[in-house]
């Protein structure tokens, strides 16, 4: 198999790699906020249950969680989540990343000085208006570097989907590597991830810069 064939065959899987990436962000970013709010709940049962769930999601391998979501239902109840492996992959990734985002959000929310809430309260802002208009925009700015970190990791983590044989770029590469007894596909995969993350870095840098107008 020529180098060019390897590259084009693997590139065909990039669409699925991107699907995991974008769908995971789409679901985990808002889900993380929900988890963060539950984690900060004044109800102690809610906050400690959430806290426990977060420790499990962060304390066990994503690969294990992916296997559990994909095959767990079959072993437990005799049915599969879906024929299309993209669905369990996105579910597992979204839940896992939501746990990380939740802790980033929580850190950001707790870093906003009490004076901001007090000023808003005296000026007649409702709690919801205070969160949406005063707190959240400042949180977003503060957490951008940590979020970028997670997003970069997510690009590389999409390769974990090979464990359930979802035909994304890395899975295809691994299959070629096996059949051709060649290391080249891994080098190609490395280049793909690197370029992907160069783009991510650019985009996130833009977003950060767009919030540079205040400190």
């Amino acid at each position: 198999m020529s180098l060019l064939t390897m590259i084009t065959t693997m590139a065909e899987g990039l669409g699925k790699t991107c699907a995991i990436f974008f769908l995971t962000l789409l679901f985990s970013l808002p889900l993380g906020m929900l988890v963060a709010l539950l984690r900060m709940s004044k109800n102690r049962i809610v906050s400690s249950v959430t806290r426990f769930v977060i420790t499990v999601l962060r304390g066990t391998p994503l690969m294990l969680q992916l296997l559990a979501v994909t095959y767990g239902p079959y072993y437990l109840f005799g049915f599969s989540v879906s024929r299309n492996k993209l669905i369990p992959v996105v579910i597992a990734f979204s839940i896992n990343y939501a746990a990380y985002f939740a802790e980033i959000y929580r850190g950001g929310i707790e870093s906003i000085p009490a004076g901001q809430y007090e000023a808003a309260a005296v000026l007649g802002y409702t709690r919801f208006q205070t969160f949406l208009r005063i707190v959240l925009p400042q949180v977003v700015k503060r957490i951008m570097p940590s979020v970028t970190n997670e997003v970069v990791t997510l690009v590389k983590d999409t390769s974990i989907a090979f464990t359930v044989s979802y035909q994304e770029m890395f899975t295809i590469g691994k299959q070629i590597a096996n059949s051709q007894t060649s290391f080249t596909p891994f080098l190609i995969a490395g280049v793909f991830y690197y370029v992907f993350n160069l783009i991510v870095d650019r985009v996130m840098g833009r977003i950060e810069k767009s919030m540079d107008y205040y400190k």
Partner: peptide, 9 residues
């Protein structure tokens, strides 16, 4: 307030 508490954004 002592620390102004303006909305920085």
């Amino acid at each position: 307030f002592q620390n102004f508490n303006l909305f920085p954004h």
